[in-house]
Simulated scan of single mutants.
Amino acid sequence: MQFHRFENSAALNSNFAKRLIDLLEAGIAERGHAYLAVSGGRTPQALFSHLAGTELPWSKVTITLADDRWLAPDAKDSNERLVKSVLLQDKASAAHFISLVTTDERAEDGADAINKRLAVIPTFDAVILGMGEDGHTASLFPCSQELAEGLTIAQDALAVNPTTAPYQRMSLSKQRLLNTRHLFLHLVGAGKLPVLNQAVAGDDVMQMPIRAFLHHPCVDIQVMFASE
């Protein structure tokens, strides 16, 4: 783990956006296309705005989500809605997007279709994770019966039914999230630091799933943190 602390979120987002653009440019130059997985919520919105206004051959970039709530794509709490309304704007509107939802009523019923969509993605150039106060990341919740499956399965995505958060979810698995050239954990807020410290200090991944990424022996996760 490498910990990067910034004076404020504006400095973090400016630096982080540049790093991501450099990685995407390198992916396009070396392999003809770049792949990025992002997280939803409030934390990445300013970062998304930075990226959206940056020059890049966005038509050669494919973006998907680390997880999404099982909602219509235009629903208020949909991560897809956030990505489309903030990130896939301006110059970045030319990027390709792979959705993690279908029209099936239950997430379990749409899992096969989602896995077929994700099968076209090779190794990500970058994955951006978030972290909840309970130590969850993506939709790998410590409260869910599906956690052990999400931490061990070889398939790309799975349906998750958290008991301490609303909505069914579709989440990328640990293996799919780790299949990346660069892994980031994006944290904003003073309250995130004690949670991170608790996660670093222990090794029970079932208690705090983010530990599976912080302590992975082969992946050097980059923690991007600002207290405000």
Rank of each mutant, 00 (worst) to 15 (best):
A212V: 03
R176G: 03
T152Q: 08
L193T: 14
D203E: 15
M170G: 01
T180D: 08
A199S: 14
A154C: 01
R181M: 10
D156T: 09
R181V: 11
L193K: 15
A190I: 14
P209I: 12
M170Y: 01
R211C: 13
P166T: 11
D156W: 07
A159P: 04
A148T: 03
Y167P: 04
T152V: 07
R176A: 09
S171T: 08
Q168D: 14
G202N: 14
L177V: 10
V188I: 15
P162Q: 06
S173L: 02
H182W: 02
H186C: 07
A165C: 08
V195Y: 12
M206S: 03
Q175R: 05
P209N: 12
S171N: 02
Q207F: 07
L185H: 02
P162E: 07
Q145R: 05
L147G: 00
P194N: 15
P194K: 14
A157W: 02
L177P: 00
M170K: 01
A190V: 07
V205A: 06
P162R: 07
A165H: 12
Q207M: 11
M206C: 03
Q168C: 12
T180E: 06
P166M: 12
V195E: 11
L187H: 06
N197I: 09
A201L: 06
R169T: 02
T152W: 07
L151A: 08
A212R: 07
D204K: 08
P166Q: 10
L151D: 04
P162F: 10
T164F: 09
R181D: 12
G150W: 01
I210V: 15
K174N: 02
T180W: 02
V200T: 14
Q168V: 11
L193F: 13
Q155P: 00
L158D: 00
L187A: 10
L172W: 06
N161Y: 15
G191K: 13
Q175M: 09
K192H: 05
L196I: 14
I153S: 04
R176D: 03
Q198R: 14
V195H: 08
R211D: 11
D203P: 03
Q155E: 09
E149F: 03
L185D: 02
Q145E: 12
Q198L: 14
N179C: 08
H186E: 11
R169H: 11
Y167V: 05
L147Y: 00
L196P: 11
I210E: 05
V160K: 00
I210Y: 04
L187T: 10
P194D: 14
E146P: 03
T163E: 06
A212I: 05
R181E: 14
D203W: 13
L185S: 07
A159I: 07
V188H: 10
Q155M: 05
